[in-house]
């Protein structure tokens, strides 16, 4: 995984609340066994109409969205299924951070593991961001702040270990493997609530 320190970009704003993983990555594309090139399916039913033609009014299709890597989303973004295809597709599309007031639990965890930064800001900052699509924003992971164009900064929570992994491009599996002796010791203990 690539290390992330700072993300600086104009924003794409998708204000809808409760955007679920079936919108981010429609189920019918799930029968893939690979994780490459998934951006093709990203928001497919919003980006394209039934005949496959581009929907010019959808925010991702507007010219000003080209090259943006920060998505400002409505509350409860990423609710629904555990499919990691959702963050894979966003990342493959070029999105590196999602900012909202709340992000669904499994999506949040999946995003962290794929170099897609889930950023939770206060309601006031969120409202400002929703009202200013295309604003140039800087996310500083080390300081855990979002800097708005006028210089104001809003902090965001980031679990210490996740921040460490993102900053240093470490993947969690390495850490887990380093704890194998403790895992083996745990397996030798008699189970407390089961006979097996």
């Amino acid at each position: 995984m690539q290390a992330i320190r700072r993300i600086r970009s104009r924003t794409i704003v998708l204000p809808a609340a409760d955007v679920d993983t079936d919108q981010i990555f429609p189920a019918r594309f799930l029968t893939t066994t690979s994780r490459e090139g998934l951006s093709q399916a990203l928001f497919a039913d919003w980006r394209f109409d039934a005949s496959g033609a581009l929907q010019p009014e959808f925010v991702l299709n507007r010219t000003e969205s080209t090259g943006c890597s920060i998505l400002v989303a409505g509350r409860n973004f990423g609710c629904g299924s555990s499919r990691e295809h959702a963050p894979w597709a966003l990342h493959d599309y070029g999105i590196r951070a999602v900012i909202s007031t709340s992000i669904a639990d499994i999506f949040f965890n999946n995003a962290l593991k794929n170099g897609l930064l889930p950023v939770l800001v206060d309601a006031e900052t969120h409202l400002w961001l929703l009202a200013h699509p295309g604003a140039e924003v800087e996310i500083d992971l080390e300081a855990s702040t979002v800097k708005l164009p006028d210089g104001r900064r809003a902090g965001f929570p980031m679990e210490a270990f996740a921040r460490h992994c993102l900053l240093h491009g470490v993947d969690e599996l390495g850490y887990l493997l380093s704890r194998l002796p403790a895992i083996e010791a745990h397996e030798r203990k008699p189970a407390r609530h089961s006979p097996a």
């Binding site: 990691e84 965890n109 969690e172 887990l176």
Partner: peptide, 20 residues
Amino acid sequence: FGIGTTEVGHVLATQCLLQR
């Protein structure tokens, strides 16, 4: 509880997950 595919890999390799 449900997990993503990266975590499926963690469990396959270690039988454990990192959780708060």
